[in-house]
Amino acid sequence: MATPTDTDPRAILRGGLPDRYLTPDDIAELFDVPKETVYQWRKKRLGPPGFRIGKHLRYDPADVRAYVTRRKTTDQDAA
C-alpha cells in the first residue's frame, strides 16, 4: 500500500530526500506548475538544475532542495 510519502514529491522532500531522481512531472507537481513551465525554466536556466540520462530529463533531489533554499534566501533578502 502506497503512503502519501511514497507518491507525493512534496511530502518526500519535506520528509527527507527520496532514493530516486525526480522527473519533470515530479518537479511540476512539487511546484504546482504545468510541466511546460518546467521545460521553459530549463531552457532559460531559471529553475532547479537538471541533467539528461539518455533522452530522459532528471533532477537530483539535493539540487532541488538547494534551489529552493537559494530562492527562499533571495526572496527574503529582497523583502
Rank of each mutant, 00 (worst) to 15 (best):
P34Y: 14
Y39R: 01
D63C: 09
P18L: 06
K35N: 07
K55Y: 11
G54N: 06
E29G: 13
P24Y: 10
T7E: 07
M1L: 15
P34Q: 14
P18F: 06
L46S: 04
A66D: 01
V68T: 03
V64G: 04
K35L: 05
T3E: 08
R71L: 10
W41S: 02
T3Q: 09
H56N: 12
D19N: 07
E36C: 08
L13P: 05
T23I: 02
R42Q: 03
E36K: 13
L22I: 04
T74A: 08
Y39C: 01
D32L: 03
A2G: 07
L22M: 09
F31M: 01
D8S: 05
A11N: 15
P48I: 06
I27N: 02
A79V: 15
A62S: 10
D75P: 05
K35I: 07
Y21H: 15
K55N: 13
V38E: 06
G47N: 00
D75C: 07
G15A: 15
I12P: 05
G15E: 14
D63K: 10
R52I: 15
P4N: 00
G50E: 09
G15C: 14
I27A: 03
K55D: 12
T69D: 15
D77P: 12
D25W: 10
P49W: 02
A78S: 13
Y59Q: 00
L22W: 04
D26I: 08
D77K: 14
R58F: 02
D60V: 09
P49L: 04
K43S: 12
K44G: 08
R14K: 15
A79L: 15
R71N: 04
G16P: 06
T73F: 14
V33C: 05
D75T: 09
R52A: 13
F51Y: 12
A79H: 15
K35M: 07
K55T: 13
F31T: 01
P4G: 00
P4K: 01
D63N: 08
D75N: 09
P49D: 02
A28S: 13
I12C: 12
V38H: 08
P9L: 01
K72W: 08
T69C: 12
V68Y: 03
R42V: 04
L17Q: 07
D25N: 13
G47F: 00
D6W: 03
F51H: 13
Y39K: 01
I53H: 10
D6S: 04
T23Y: 02
